[in-house]
Design a protein around this nucleic acid. Sequence first.
DNA 1: GGGTATATGTTCTCTGCGGGAACATTTTAA
DNA 2: TTAAAATGTTCCCGCAGAGAACATATACCC
Lengths: 392, 392
Amino acid sequence: MTEDATGTDMPAQPEVPARMAAARGSRNDHTRRHNLSSLVTAVHYGGPLTRAQLTRDTGLNRSTIGGLVTELAELGLVIEDAAAETGAVGRPSLIVRPRVDVAALALHPDVDALELGAVAIDGTVVARRRTSVDAPPTPADAVAFAREAARDIAAEMPGLRVVGAGAAVPGLVAIDGSTVVAAPHLGWRDVDLGAALAEVFDFPIAVGNDANMGLRAEWSFGSARGVDTVVYLNGSASGIGGAALVGGRMLRGGRGYGGEFGHMMIRSDGDRCSCGRSGCLETELNAHRLDAAAHDAPAFDALASTLATAIANLECAFDPDLVLLGGYLGALFDARRDLVAARVRELAFRPDAEDVAIARARLGRNRLLIGAAERAFAPLLEDPAGVPLVAL
Amino acid sequence: MTEDATGTDMPAQPEVPARMAAARGSRNDHTRRHNLSSLVTAVHYGGPLTRAQLTRDTGLNRSTIGGLVTELAELGLVIEDAAAETGAVGRPSLIVRPRVDVAALALHPDVDALELGAVAIDGTVVARRRTSVDAPPTPADAVAFAREAARDIAAEMPGLRVVGAGAAVPGLVAIDGSTVVAAPHLGWRDVDLGAALAEVFDFPIAVGNDANMGLRAEWSFGSARGVDTVVYLNGSASGIGGAALVGGRMLRGGRGYGGEFGHMMIRSDGDRCSCGRSGCLETELNAHRLDAAAHDAPAFDALASTLATAIANLECAFDPDLVLLGGYLGALFDARRDLVAARVRELAFRPDAEDVAIARARLGRNRLLIGAAERAFAPLLEDPAGVPLVAL
DNA sequence: GGGTATATGTTCTCTGCGGGAACATTTTAA
DNA sequence: TTAAAATGTTCCCGCAGAGAACATATACCC
């Protein structure tokens, strides 16, 4: 039995999938939206920029930029300041800066703590509330904490205008961006956290996997800033979280479970993993084993070598511009940089002698807050005039 | 040493990567281009469509569609026919069909043969020339063959207007879409095939990896039609080629070497692979072993199980909507469907009981020609008015 | 066979948006 | 003080799609 190896005729194609069908028509107001989006995106990631800079970057006309910036100012998203002294010839250009009273909330429920932050549109964490918990919090705990902490922050920062909230959850989140399908360490299963939070807040909620949001943060303001193709591995008490950026887009997968590199098989004769399989990366290289090997150089080296194997495997699948390591994997890498690099060089499938770039994540405790907030900001960046801001 | 766990302040961001900077401004003619592109894309993938259908799909106005279709007809890309009898009330809508004299060439140099095809814009292979070779062809052989075969096809089909050519090469192709960095089975290394072909042809050349182009073809007109997230594995004499679609986009990687799943480690104590590592999928599961196990059920089952392991591993990394198998992997799957499915179910990292969809590629010998042609058509689909068509 | 309802093609006008020219403003340099 | 350079502002133009009005082609009903 072989594949259809028919002649020149093609089979009939009754159904046309959405992506292949005629895209929704583009109208003039789409143009406007796109241009507004470009400007907000630029000041979001790039901070204050002059109008002249925006004119050059976009290729749009001075007059057009003027109109767009005016509209953004009226929307309350940016402020125009008089220029700083530049020393250059000519009339100084006005400086467009994002208004830092525009913010997003970010929730991070974890095994041992609940945290809520407010992140301004320039990526700074402007407020933070954290509470340690003895037992893993229930969804209701998380929602109640979020409501109280938000109320508290609102009192502290009365002028804050909120675009939405993001929640970074250590577990599998469905593609709907709302349902936590399984968060083993929290003991959650099929919890619609987005709906629960929506009952407490008046703005949109985006729920996502913590590793995805961590990578998003590092891409936006951290070690992976602007890098198009990134593989991210983060080691924490709850195992190894993974995420990948592919061509500038987050790898999500069909159901939202993409990037679970903690469960890639790294040793065919490895130990049993909690997921039911054997030899998963997060079983072979977990915090416990790392602690145990802390004073045993050969064992520690072996773990570094395991990390290198995982990196090499991901390298041949993704060919990333950068492999980013966070949590205890970042620490392990820092402790054995040369060994890891050498081992990856040895194992990596590469036609050239160029090394795989490996770096350590650097946003630390701000990472998940920033990442979750980035998710919440995304609709605003895409359609600045179409997303309402509400008082917290 | 820990990651920067600073307070609320963000580090300064001196450089802004291109993706984050203000995007190029959108002008009115971008709108036009986008809409023309939508229509050509729709008839390319969906075949003949009525104007009324296009109006509904795009949401554009009847009058706008009229103008767009007229422009496409003037460009020689589509033809409007009187409606077929539909039996419906009302004036019958005109049928817009792609002009099949618009074509792309597709070259496939392989170990044992050279093949050139002409593929019409509706995806049909309208001409084909093939020659078997005793020894792997040199780049010069491939170019000479392409020139002669193209001349031959031109004589046979005088009216053909060509948008470009694609070449599907069994090896690593650089991100530039021109240079074959390494094609071990052909014995090519650092060959700028695109430049060599450009000296012979008057149209743009796109060179790519054969697995990528195979998946592109199956996505366009085959088993993976329109599926957003696909992992593809193809077994051939030259090993196992891999490719992936992520969110509707081909996984390319930073240098163009993404998707080399043939070299993912599948057994930590496996045999030495030609790439220098051990236990690579294409070493553990190659054509030779498959032949050897043809009459040994347990050995054959073991190979099927190896395939299942690979699928499960890819599943946890990509969470694909579909795993597509071609070549001997497709045959192996067909011979042991239940075993593979059961083993994948057992190994796959999934929170739900839903099975991973696995299918066999079905375009057969047309696959690489169609895929390579798709690459060549891409610029035309994106900017129908901006890409010249030349006589072959 | 003729009239009506329905759907679509065609034409014309209107609106929104970006481009660009001309002019105003603000700085540096001579 | 004047000139040059760069940018902001204003006003007008052209392009593209929306939509109304009208023309055309089919099915259905009598």
